[in-house]
């Protein structure tokens, strides 16, 4: 039904855990992740879908969570940076980010990692231009782009062995 409502009870699965909560219709998925679910790994920066710091995976596709109303995520599967580790161990990609020196201040890294995980899921053997294009929506002001690309490449190569 289409009644007019200003808060909505939504159900979503975040990092494998089902959550049900009332959300204000004018709050974004980013607001709800950070403020209501206290998953502060997802970062807030530009709020116009340009920087990618708030990148999460929504039903298997990466989005800028600052541009998704929380209510739009009703019944969705959401993965944030907190959901990338496996059994308490960092993922090979997370480890590669550390090994290759892809992390300086770290503020963009959650978004970079979620985007890079999605990129590898879709394209297990990306070329350098494909990585650069695929991650262009994630700004890094420390300028770790080269190292991030190397980390993604190395992870892909390792997985292919």
């Amino acid at each position: 039904m289409s009644e007019m409502i200003q808060t909505v009870l939504i159900e979503l699965t975040v990092n494998g855990r089902r959550r049900a909560l009332d959300v204000a219709v004018n709050h974004t998925l980013l607001d709800v992740l950070r403020d209501d679910l206290e998953l502060t790994g997802t970062k807030e920066c530009c709020l116009v879908g340009e920087c990618g710091a708030c990148t999460v995976s929504l039903d298997g596709r990466i989005v800028d969570s600052c541009l998704v109303l929380a209510v739009e995520a009703d019944r969705a599967q959401v993965t944030t940076v907190e959901g990338l580790a496996v059994d308490g161990h960092v993922s090979p990609l997370q480890q590669a980010f550390l090994d290759k020196g892809a992390v300086q201040c770290g503020f963009c890294i959650p978004g970079q990692l979620v985007a890079a995980h999605a990129l590898l899921a879709e394209n297990p053997h990306p070329t350098v231009p494909e990585i650069q294009e695929g991650l262009a929506g994630n700004l890094c002001r420390c300028g770790c782009y080269q190292q991030i690309t190397e980390a993604v490449l190395a992870t892909a190569e390792e997985a292919a062995r």
Partner: peptide
């Protein structure tokens, strides 16, 4: 040597707390 960044784990798992993350 070039060990992994100290504090790096927090930065790749999202547990590193920046000011806006502190409640």
């Amino acid at each position: 040597g070039s060990p992994n960044r100290v504090g790096g784990i927090g930065r790749v798992t999202g547990s590193q707390q920046y000011v806006a993350d502190i409640r």
